[in-house]
């Protein structure tokens, strides 16, 4: 199995407070990896280390090495790294422009200016997320007028406009209703044919349904990682068992 991302002893700090403690793990290519664990265990921080978003925050830093393919991410410039590793957040956060402008925001930054090419990108990615049929008539409408589930799918489509290798989702369904969540889960199963997906979720059933591989984190440590069936069916560590059986979390 080809690993696209490898973390070696990654520790993260907010000021003097440590949020990640020597995390090592790897992510297989074109599969869905779920990261589970109780809130505050460092899941989101981990994502922010991977695309180096952490360095945009005040007084935050991380140590250790992260490899994207064979290359250490410290040797890749922040912009470039984040273009290659997309990220979608918990609450849908469309920019306050039209749907179309949301979709062309990043391509324009990267120097795509031809209308034809911009149109192509917008349509292609909207189709990938199944949003195109729903909004094709209203591409000029404010993105804020879409429903919550549509907004989140727009954010995913927007993240795809720069053709990332990896797509990270930070609890993408926690602000959505069951129906919207189901649509997104189905879509992710489609997307993994093209992209590597990392999803942070506190919904264990969701991880079980969609993930090929699961990582369990607790208190800044990776406790256990492996194929989803094994983690859920036959956890080896006490903490994992307790968490899965609902003792805490």
């Amino acid at each position: 199995m080809e690993m696209i991302l490898r973390l070696e002893k990654v520790s993260a700090y907010y000021g003097k407070k440590s949020a990640l403690k020597e995390v090592s793990m790897s992510v297989p290519k074109k599969q869905i990896t779920a990261i589970i664990g109780p809130s505050g265990c460092g899941k989101s921080t981990l994502l922010r280390c991977i695309n180096s978003l952490l360095s945009e925050e005040k007084d935050a830093s991380y140590t250790g090495d992260i490899f994207l393919g064979e290359k250490n991410t410290r040797d890749i410039e922040g912009d470039e790294l984040r273009r290659r590793i997309g990220m979608v957040f918990q609450t849908p956060s469309p920019f306050p422009f039209s749907v179309y402008k949301n979709m062309t925001y990043a391509p324009k930054y990267n120097g795509v200016h031809s209308k034809k090419e911009l149109d192509r990108i917008a349509v292609e990615k909207l189709k990938m997320t199944g949003l195109f049929d729903e909004v094709s008539a209203e591409l000029d409408k404010s993105a804020l007028k879409l429903s919550g589930g549509q907004q989140q799918r727009l954010c995913i489509a927007r993240a795809l406009t720069v053709d990332p290798e990896i797509l990270m989702l930070d609890e993408p369904c926690s602000a959505l209703d069951i129906k919207s969540s189901a649509i997104i889960e189905k879509m992710l199963a489609e997307l993994k044919k093209t992209y590597t997906i990392i999803i942070v979720t506190h919904n264990l059933a969701q991880a079980k349904r969609i993930a090929d591989r699961t990582v369990f984190m607790y208190d800044g440590h990776v406790i256990e990682e492996g194929p989803t069936d094994e983690i859920f069916g036959n956890p080896k560590k006490e903490e994992t068992k307790d968490f899965l059986s609902g003792v805490f979390g």
Binding site: E56, M87, F95, P96, Y105, V162
Partner: peptide, 27 residues
């Protein structure tokens, strides 16, 4: 300004300057 909106822009690989100019200031 909602933090996630800014983070979304950074996460797309857009620089601070572009984000401030195209998202923050218009907002």
């Amino acid at each position: 300004i909602p933090q996630q909106m800014l983070s979304s822009s950074y996460a797309l690989g857009c620089s601070r300057g572009y984000t401030v100019f195209h998202i923050a200031l218009p907002y």
